[in-house]
Design a protein around this nucleic acid. Structure first.
Lengths: 148, 148
DNA sequence: TTGCTCCTCACGTCACGTGAGGTGGC
DNA sequence: TTGCTCCTCACGTCACGTGAGGTGGC
C-alpha cells in the first residue's frame, strides 16, 4: 500500500491515527490490510498534501458526505469547499510564478558576472560595478550587490 | 520590520537564530535594529518559504558569495543553484495544476447531484446511480461514489 | 503614570523521520 | 532456519505559534 502510492509506512500509520485511513482488517499478526478504495484515498491525500493543504483541511473534504443529511446538501457543500480549494490553489500557482520571475530575473543579471575578472569590487562592492544595471530587483540586491 | 514584511516577530527571531538575518545593532534595551537590506532579505526569504524551500536551501543561496573565491566562480555557482530552484518551482507548478484539474473534474461530476432528490442510493451507493458517468476519476470514487 | 510594544525563556504543534527491539510469513 | 518485512513505542526534527512574566520608550 505505502509503496504503491509513493509514500511511507510511517505516513500511512500517521494518517490512520489521524482518522483519514482505515485498514479493512488486520491479519493474525497485526499486519494492516487495505482495500483498493483506500489506496485511491491515500493517493488523493498525497496530492492534496503536495498542494499544501493540512490534514484537517483534507479531512474536511473527505467527511462531507457523512455529515450531510441529503444528497443535494452534500453536493452543494462539497462544491463550495472545492471552490475554496481551487481558489487557494490558484493563489499558490500565482505566488510560485512570481517567485519564478524573481529568480529568473536574478539569474539574468548575474549572467553578466560570469566573466568577472578578479574585480577589486568583489565581493562586497558589486553594487558599484558597471555590469550591474539599475533595474531594481530587490532579490539581486540581497543575493549579489552587497554582502553582510 | 516584521510588520513591514508581512511576517511575525517570532519568525524574525527564528531566522536570526538560524543565521539568516542579523540585526545591525541593538538598542540599550535590547530592541533589534535592522537595515533596509535586511528587510529585502526577509522578503526574499518569505517568498522562497512560500515556494516551499527549507531554510537550509535558502541559506545555501544566501551564502554563495561568501563561499566563493572569485566573482566568476560565485556567478556560475549561483546560476547553477538558481536553475535547480527554477526546475523545482516548475515541478511544483505542474503538480498544483494537476491537482487543480482533479478537483475541477470532481466538481463537474458532483454538479449533476445538485438536484439529488432523496435517492435511496445516498449516501453509500452513489456509485450505482445513473447520474455518475464512467469517467474514471479516482478522486470522485473516494469523495463521492462510496463511503467508508 | 499609562499603554503599547518589545524582550527572553520555554513549552506546544504539525506532519512526519528515525531508530530500538520484537514478530510474521514465505 | 534464514531474510525480509511489518509491528509498536518513543524520541527527534523543522518552522514556527503561543503564552508567561518582565522591560523599554514615547
Amino acid at each position: 500500500m505505502a509503496r504503491r502510492s509513493g509514500s511511507t509506512l510511517r505516513t500511512v500509520r500517521f494518517y490512520e491515527e489521524a482518522g483519514l485511513l482505515k485498514p479493512q482488517e488486520r491479519t493474525e499478526g497485526g499486519h494492516r490490510l487495505f482495500t483498493d478504495c483506500e489506496l485511491k484515498k491515500l493517493n488523493l491525500i498525497s496530492d492534496l498534501r503536495a498542494a499544501g493543504f493540512s490534514l484537517d483541511e483534507i479531512k474536511d473534504l473527505l467527511t462531507v458526505k457523512e455529515q450531510s443529511p441529503t444528497g443535494a446538501h452534500a453536493a452543494s457543500c462539497l462544491m463550495e469547499k472545492l471552490d475554496d480549494r481551487l481558489a487557494t490553489i490558484g493563489e499558490r500557482i500565482d505566488a510560485l510564478q512570481r517567485v519564478r520571475t524573481v529568480l529568473s530575473n536574478t539569474k539574468e543579471m548575474v549572467a553578466g558576472c560570469a566573466a568577472c575578472d578578479h574585480s577589486p569590487l568583489f565581493p562586497t562592492r558589486c553594487g558599484e560595478c558597471e555590469v550591474m544595471s539599475e533595474a531594481g530587483e530587490p532579490a539581486v540586491d540581497v543575493l549579489w550587490k552587497v554582502d553582510r
